[in-house]
Nucleic acid binder design. Structure first.
Lengths: 222, 222
DNA sequence: CATATTCTCAGTAGTACTACCGAGATTTCC
DNA sequence: GGAAATCTCGGTAGTACTACTGAGAATATG
């Protein structure tokens, strides 16, 4: 609700950007891109999270463009630290993962945006401008996960569940007791129990309460 | 994953914007704001959702800046229609509600952004540029709800749970059996059972599997 | 101070789930 | 054709959860 004095490039000169990435090549690439635009100014480069936090304190940039995976302190930890100590700095997370399980955590960590490394120069500039002026920006590929749903890609099943097991899991997650699941699938209660046992084994949960989590994780509940 | 040919103002002239709001005053205000920027061009104005859909088809704007509440067809319905028929058009939703229960629905409806009417001119321009270039944009006030959790406001508990009940629910959702919950809270198993019973009664669930859902809904699991 | 709510705990009984074991039928794959 | 996986079902036993009733103690609430 409370705005943290967003940057407005029409009023206060160029947007000051601090880069944080452990790969020099990437930093050079970003710098090359941003140099072409007069509204943006790269004021420093950090090679890990801790350095990013320290440099943010000293340089007071408008935007911190930061990779997630870095040695010593990763981007998420750094983002959390900065939210606490330097809330005026807009953190824009850069990641290679277009399977963005992270997005939720990223926003919770206080970041103002999440962009992928395959983003175009134009989009990157737009993203920086967006977060600098007080908004949240996300790459287009991120969209579906913003609403929690797994959307198009039904999530690569990390547990190796069979089709039948998924059916049973879905029913269980809806709160149906074994008896009803059995009736719904036209099999015996014992069979459902078997599936249930296998399910818990495969996903490593101790009881029914946990199965809901897995069902949701697998996107079986939309 | 698939990009829908995002607009890039460096390559193809001004961003073509279609306005949709049932209040002329608001449209005039937006138009006045956008006119000051050469990269933006207002190509038309609609006064309701149906008109917005039709004009989108004819004018093929890059961005449709649309109010949520409009007569005949509201912004959400229009957004869904446009996603189906004109997926290349980026829909940016304008709303007065800073209590953004809508955000989830807005994104699901296919919109690429959600901004509040108290937004500054600069931010509005940034938002339009953002969605035009393929990203998602959200006003800063929207942030907390992006992650589902209510962040600052601990979610209005719709069930009227007591503090103790929330503690028990949290433990149950983590998969702990009653015995462990009892030990963790320093009470007897019977008491935990009582709480559990009351919980299921209050939230209307039949078994443990469902309780996880509620715990998550209440934001007890972060 | 009376009332209500919350939190605590117990008895009793029934239902549901968990944990093993084994095993036949079917399909898939090499 | 044999191996492997899947789906099916049963026995037995123990643990966990559900359902209902009742009730004392502490804490708000009026």
């Amino acid at each position: 609700m409370t705005m943290t004095s967003p940057h407005s490039e029409t009023s206060r000169g160029p947007i000051r950007v601090l880069l944080a990435d452990d790969h020099e090549l990437v930093r050079d690439g970003i710098r090359a891109r941003l140099q072409k635009v007069s509204e943006l100014e790269v004021v420093g480069e950090a090679t890990n999270g801790r350095e990013a936090v320290r440099m943010t304190r000293n340089l007071k940039p408008d935007v911190l463009l930061m990779d997630v995976s870095m040695p010593i302190m990763n981007g998420l930890e750094a983002a959390m630290e900065i939210r606490k100590t330097q809330p005026d700095v807009a953190v824009l997370i850069l990641s290679v993962y277009d399977n963005p399980e992270y997005v939720r955590g990223v926003v919770q960590a206080g970041a103002r945006g999440y962009i992928l490394k395959d983003i175009s120069a134009q989009e990157m500039i737009t993203a920086i401008t967006s977060v600098a002026s007080g908004g949240y920006f996300f790459s287009s590929a991120i969209g579906p996960t913003l609403v929690g749903a797994s959307a198009s890609a039904p999530v690569e099943d990390p547990y190796g569940l069979t089709e039948r097991e998924r059916q049973v899991l879905t029913a269980i997650a809806k709160g149906q007791p074994n008896k009803e699941v059995a009736a719904a699938l036209g099999i015996s209660v014992r069979t459902v129990e078997s599936h249930r046992l296998n399910l818990r084994e495969k996903v490593g949960s101790r009881n029914a309460a946990q199965l809901y989590r897995v069902a949701q994780e697998l996107g079986l509940l939309d």
